[in-house]
Computed example of a mutant assay.
Amino acid sequence: MAAPSASPAHDYEPAGELKIGQVGIANLRVRTLDVARLASEMADRVKRAPKLFARAAVIVDFGGLAATPDAATARALLDGLREAGVLPVALAYGSSDNEKLATELGLPLLAKFRAQYESAGGAPVAAPAPAPAPAPRDAAEPAPARTEAKAPPKAVAAGQPGLIQATPVRSGQQVYADNRDLTVLTTVGAGAEVIADGSVHIYGTLRGRALAGAQGNEKARIFCRAFHAELVAIAGNYKVLEDIPKELHGKAVQVWLEKEELKIAALD
């Protein structure tokens, strides 16, 4: 009698590889529930900096309001944001009413990721990322919300060496220095992103995006040798190239935060 044939080996290789890590995404903290005004403000941002904001993923954060809006109003806002040129993809974590609203809208709830942009007036702003972040990796197109009662920023560990990036950061790549400074010895290309919980030092040309103080450290700074940045931000306060005086383009500059206002000046 012939021996039974061996069972075929099962292929456990997944069809898709799922990874959880650093996500560049904007957080729109709604401070005044005026759908038309919010959509108009967003359309203006997209018009001024289309490479950064056009079709950018956005978390909508209703945590700054006294009450969670009803589903009809929330849908009108989502439609207005889409018409303005961005893509609302989730609601930010909040109250139980907010969770019910997300279910009704068919959207997920997400924590406030570190993202890139604005600090006031219902604008998307940089926010702390609760998940651990990976080393340099390719990242999708972006790009951030200061809460009313934010947790104290995570201090950069004393004596911890900064992260040194010796090769160019190319378009679509992201480098993140977790709880330390970041030093880039070469260039940051257009469409690339460098982020640090401490300060960012760039010894070449900055053409992409640089974000310092990503966990809320308002004393962090950005230094670069040749400034052509798409965007710079410190602790969620940002400026895009269109907002920066032309006489600073191509110069060696430093960027710092003073009374919640982003300052940029040429280095002597």
Rank of each mutant, 00 (worst) to 15 (best):
E104N: 05
A115N: 10
G121V: 09
P144L: 10
E99T: 14
G191A: 08
P168V: 02
E104Q: 15
A115K: 05
R137P: 00
T103M: 12
P128G: 02
E141F: 00
L91T: 05
E148D: 12
V169E: 06
S171G: 14
N179R: 13
V156W: 00
A145H: 05
Q165H: 04
G172E: 04
S119V: 05
G191F: 09
K100L: 15
V86L: 03
A111R: 08
A111C: 08
G85R: 10
L110Q: 11
P168G: 01
K150W: 00
A131F: 15
T187I: 02
D138W: 09
P132D: 10
A158G: 04
S119M: 11
A190L: 10
G189W: 06
P161A: 15
R137Y: 05
A135K: 08
Q173W: 10
A102D: 06
I164H: 10
A143E: 02
T187S: 14
G191W: 07
D178P: 00
A127K: 01
Y93L: 11
D97F: 01
P108Q: 07
G189R: 12
E99D: 13
T147E: 12
R180T: 15
P108W: 09
T187Y: 03
K112W: 03
A92F: 07
A102G: 07
P134C: 01
A139G: 12
A166G: 05
P88T: 04
G106M: 14
G159C: 06
G94I: 00
A90T: 02
G172P: 11
V188W: 08
R114C: 11
E118S: 10
A190R: 13
F113A: 14
T183L: 12
A143G: 13
L101W: 10
V125Y: 08
T186S: 15
V175M: 03
T183H: 11
K150T: 02
T103N: 12
V89E: 09
A84Q: 01
R137C: 03
G106P: 12
A126N: 13
A133F: 01
P128S: 06
Y176C: 03
G122A: 11
S119N: 12
A127W: 06
V125F: 09
V156Q: 03
A190S: 15
D97H: 08
Q165P: 00
V89M: 05
L91E: 02
D97K: 11
L105Q: 07
P136L: 10
D181N: 15
P168K: 09
A131M: 14
K154C: 00
S95T: 15
G159A: 07
G189P: 02
P124D: 01
Q116E: 03
Q174H: 00
T187G: 06
Y176D: 09
R180I: 01
A143C: 01
L163F: 12
N179L: 02
P132K: 04
Y176M: 12
R146D: 00
G191K: 09
T186L: 11
E141I: 00
A90Y: 00
A139E: 11
G191T: 04
A166Q: 13
